[in-house]
Design a protein around this nucleic acid. Structure first.
Lengths: 113, 113
DNA sequence: AAGATATTCAACCAAAAAGTTGATTATTAT
DNA sequence: ATAATAATCAACTTTTTGGTTGAATATCTT
């Protein structure tokens, strides 16, 4: 069970986000994923491992080659946290607005009196 | 201009997410934010700085005390990245499904022949 | 003017992250 | 059987991170 900590820190690295983007067209081998990045194959292999442990990638082995694909399920917890946080904020804003409106109404009354 | 890297790695720390949660009820002083965490005030002060630099918090100084509040705007870039990524995946799934349906149709034809 | 309070700055430390190179394991091709 | 290919493992280095303590700065209170 990958935690939200893992997911978010996995996503915080640009190379890893690039790898995810590379998988938009479907599964890719480790070497294919590594090719565009100017760093060793080993380094990319490690990035893949991090993404995998974060639940963002799944690996399918076929002989000596490993095929990686993106698992969107890995994103949901993080996405939910962000949306919840925004929502809590908008509730706050709404409350504020309501308070302002109530105040306006009071002003109105006082003005008419 | 805080990058998405900054935002995501800021959010990857549980203490920092907790701080954001603490701000759901409105602005708080540094010491108030620090109080529930079992670590030094200095440590929390640093976490706040990280969140601030990531564009997730804003600081208002009033005399010697600093009031922090959450800035939901800081979340949008990260939220967009995640949503875009999910969307790109669902497009892929849709394409796949379409292909399968087309295949089914072919099977159907062949069956009837 | 002193002292208390709110906060940051600076220097340090230990652990984790991101990269490297070299060796190892498995699998496939000649 | 040998050699080539696909990938990981292991050991090491450098940088970054998350924490500490102690000193400094700024403001408020008496």
């Amino acid at each position: 069970m990958p935690s939200i900590d893992h997911t978010l820190s996995a996503l915080a690295d640009p190379t890893r986000r690039a790898i995810i983007a590379q998988l938009s067209t479907g599964e890719q081998r480790v070497s294919d994923l590594a090719e565009p990045h100017h760093m060793s194959l080993n380094a990319v292999s490690k990035h893949i491992k991090v993404l995998e442990e974060a639940g963002l990638l799944v690996r399918r082995k076929e002989g000596r080659t490993h095929y990686l694909s993106f698992d969107p399920e890995g994103l949901t917890e993080a996405a939910n946290w962000i949306e919840r946080t925004r929502a809590m904020w908008f509730r706050r804003l709404d409350a504020l607005e309501a308070a302002l409106l109530a105040d306006d109404a009071n002003q109105e009354k006082r003005g008419k009196r």
